[in-house]
Amino acid sequence: MNAWLEDDTVAYDPNQNRSSAKGLTINPNPKNTYLAEIEEFSNAVLENREPLNNFAKGLHSQKVLEACYESARSGIAVDIC
């Protein structure tokens, strides 16, 4: 898997011409996502630190959900604080 990321020293190119700009290629190792989530949470418990998939992310997602319902009722966009 290759991902192309634009170097942050490159200014915005309205022509989106990749060949003219420097990029970064990353080659992450493919990993089963269920294995990753269990290993990460288990490591957090063992290391006594907050997991990456923590409560704050879950709460934010919950706020997005509720905003979607509210927006569906009202017909207008809803800010998420």
């Binding site: 898997m1 996502t33 990753a36 989530e37 990460e40 997991p51 998939n53 879950g58």
Partner: peptide
Amino acid sequence: LFLGTAFFASPTTAQRIS
């Protein structure tokens, strides 16, 4: 206690490197 949310696609290697 730690409370985690099971966003299974979130802590993957690719995203962490990105």
